[in-house]
């Protein structure tokens, strides 16, 4: 009786011992998990995406203007200077290890930046941020994941329309 109970306990222990690491490996190495989750700007989408005055878009594996994006995520916020400050703080953290393709600083305040992030697996990643003040204060933040080279993506999507 006691031996059976002890065996059951040992079985449970061995299940926990093997199952938990296996699950961690599955979760940790699942390639379909969003690569943006390690970025601070994901908080911007979470925080301001559903608010009034915001337009948030998420496209997965879709063609846009002839370009194949694995993920396209954008948010446009109008008349919310606090959001702009919050985005700037997030960008300071996210630009670590990233290449700055373009940066505009007006009166000591960052108003535009294009960041080429380090690749994550097969994915090239880009962050684009722009703030305009005319006719109204408007912020645009875009996050792109693509299997194509990020320089090509930038050249294509930022050409004058």
């Amino acid at each position: 009786m006691f031996q059976i109970e002890r065996k059951k306990k040992n079985d449970m222990r061995s299940i926990k011992k093997y199952l938990i690491p296996v699950l961690l490996v599955i979760v940790g190495f699942n390639p379909t998990l969003k690569a943006q989750n390690d970025l601070q700007i994901s908080r911007v989408f979470d925080q301001y995406g559903n608010k009034k005055g915001s337009v948030m878009v998420e496209l997965t594996d879709e063609m846009l203007e002839g370009y194949d994006f694995s993920l396209f995520k954008s948010i446009t916020i109008s008349g919310n200077p606090q959001a702009a400050d919050f985005i700037r703080k997030c960008l300071i953290k996210d630009e670590t290890g990233a290449k700055k393709v373009k940066q505009v600083v007006a009166n000591g305040v960052l108003t535009s930046v294009y960041l080429q992030l380090p690749r994550k697996g097969q994915l090239y990643r880009l962050i684009l941020f722009n703030e305009t003040f005319t006719p109204i204060e408007k912020i645009t933040l875009i996050y792109i994941e693509s299997k194509n080279d990020s320089e090509d993506v930038l050249k294509l999507i930022l050409k004058k329309k």
Binding site: V55, L59, L128, T140, L154, I157, K161
Partner: peptide, 15 residues
């Protein structure tokens, strides 16, 4: 999505 991209576009050779 295109509207947000349009907000980013600039001079042709800027990039």
């Amino acid at each position: 999505a295109l509207a947000s991209l349009f907000g980013m576009s600039s001079k042709t050779n800027e990039v």
